[in-house]
Design a protein around this nucleic acid. Sequence first.
DNA 1: GATGAATGAGCATTCATTCAT
DNA 2: CATGAATGAATGCTCATTCAT
Lengths: 193, 193, 193, 193
Amino acid sequence: MPASRSKSRTDAERNRARVLEVARELFAELGDQVQMAEVAKAADVGIGTVYRHFPTRQALVEAAAQHRFAEILDFARERCLAAPDPGVGLDLLLTGIGEVLAKDRGLSGAIESAMGSAEPSGDSRTALEGLAGTLLDRGRAAGSVRDDATVTDVYMIVCGLAAVIRTGSGDWRRFVRLALDALRPGRPSSPTG
Amino acid sequence: MPASRSKSRTDAERNRARVLEVARELFAELGDQVQMAEVAKAADVGIGTVYRHFPTRQALVEAAAQHRFAEILDFARERCLAAPDPGVGLDLLLTGIGEVLAKDRGLSGAIESAMGSAEPSGDSRTALEGLAGTLLDRGRAAGSVRDDATVTDVYMIVCGLAAVIRTGSGDWRRFVRLALDALRPGRPSSPTG
Amino acid sequence: MPASRSKSRTDAERNRARVLEVARELFAELGDQVQMAEVAKAADVGIGTVYRHFPTRQALVEAAAQHRFAEILDFARERCLAAPDPGVGLDLLLTGIGEVLAKDRGLSGAIESAMGSAEPSGDSRTALEGLAGTLLDRGRAAGSVRDDATVTDVYMIVCGLAAVIRTGSGDWRRFVRLALDALRPGRPSSPTG
Amino acid sequence: MPASRSKSRTDAERNRARVLEVARELFAELGDQVQMAEVAKAADVGIGTVYRHFPTRQALVEAAAQHRFAEILDFARERCLAAPDPGVGLDLLLTGIGEVLAKDRGLSGAIESAMGSAEPSGDSRTALEGLAGTLLDRGRAAGSVRDDATVTDVYMIVCGLAAVIRTGSGDWRRFVRLALDALRPGRPSSPTG
DNA sequence: GATGAATGAGCATTCATTCAT
DNA sequence: CATGAATGAATGCTCATTCAT
């Protein structure tokens, strides 16, 4: 019965997608301390199903964050790459990220860790890499970005931004502006560098 | 006989101090999810004693972080204020903080939250305030710090720094250098500012 | 396959029932300070299972008491309503209750509180209400119960009876007899009434 | 130094009295779940002092209840024995007890247990015994109390009354009236007696 | 594949009681 | 005698994960 087989596969996919979607919503609303059972219930599946698709709580959190971050980047890509002035690309990127993080209580934590140790496949760092690289290159060419800027700088800045937003330690838009200034060409980085 | 009285009090103080010290070590080593029982055991006191001095797990975590952060600042104060060149003060401060955070896995999280919502008394933000303010003033006077820099900027930077270190998203010394560049006078903050 | 579904449900029901049964036994034997872990162990289930069915210790205590009290009333109902002489109905009821309470150390406390503030649904007071009302009516008709007797009088008497039995302050059968005399028609209640 | 000796003794007495007084107040206000440390603090003594005078929590609870109950009885004695009509003596006694219990959240429990197992010396049952005996005798002589009434009947009634008040299972004044009716001479106690 | 009942280690916190000073 | 810091067993409850159906 290939039909039933493929039907099941489709159902399974649907379940996975629904779980992921629900998880993203709950994490956004309640932060990442949401319980697995809550996710299952909200997705209207059994808790076992959640575990079938995401072997671990951590896996679900990461998958949700990854998915969300990919969304962010897709959106940012459109705006940034379409920007006439390459100088504003990074601004748009960081501001875009900030806006999403500011609305999503659970996301910041996940993004911060995602900026950390790179995992084998499909991770958020990698997703960011291409876009950030392009923007840095363009900025450099346009003279609006310092020569020694790297994507890792952007990782760190995004990580810091997420923390600033999560803890509310200040106005994150100011933080973004400071970060852009830091990446601008000017006098060389401090002499100790 | 105040002696006998003060002897007990002294012992209690000693216990409190030992608990705090042990807690700091454990938090540094294992992160801040260490259990109260572990702390008690490591401090060689009953768990009740821990609770006598710190009514809540959270209270202990905060006290430990506060204590540690105070240490950092004391040390930083010496070096920073003694620095002949006011331009290096902030560098010394941030680098000093970074070095401690880099050694203390559990501290970063605590510092990050401390940079968030200010609490009434004795909090880490306040501790940082005086020193950061002084350094910013001096730097401004010496022309090495931009005019619009505020202590809140420093809070955000420290918060970001802690996150960068905690997650290992890049070379934190580079992050510090970028931050210093951001605080340097130069072209005005981005036009949107 | 509703069978497999209902099999699980049946098992769960069985577990719930076993927990309740074990709880009743332990409460009867040891009083209602029995720990949740003891109940779980005696029921041979994990402690989580106990909590799945009874979200709170208090919930378990109440459920156990309710269940027991319902048993009492079922039994009493048979005997009381079947009694040829309506005059002995209340006697059978109170004596029946007393006999069970006398055997069950943990039950008295629960019954006493159940006689207090009425809760929305399924509570012991309500369970008692119908039977007591019927018996009072019959007794009144037969001239063996005073006109102004109410079910609340019975609540209070049951509550007092439970306390007498729990504390062993005297021969509870005597207390029942006194209570019956109090409910008998005779000279009017004290003039202040 | 006999002076210092006797001075200490006096102080100790004072402490004991203060602890007892404070305990009665706290039990009345908060119920008998008050902690030993609270009592010590409110009495402005060390917790060790509380334990010196009352070796056990239970001992303190009982002592407090005893003391309170003695007060009640002293007061009741005045009124009851002074009553011109012996028929109202018991009424005054039970109503007096009820009024105090109704005001004192922590007392009921203690009184109930006091009505239980008689302890060697100075207990509440004994305190009640003389007065209740006298009132029963007078009532019997006056024909307002049934011949077979005993002080144990009164113990049970007081115990029941305390439970009724504690749980709020009904109007305790009604309970008192029912109790008095039960003790009145009339048709013989139920035939099973 | 899906379900959800069961699991049970883990955890923060309480409080009567002891005992060195 | 008074003190109060120390004790630590006890307790109610949580939740990620497993597995029989």
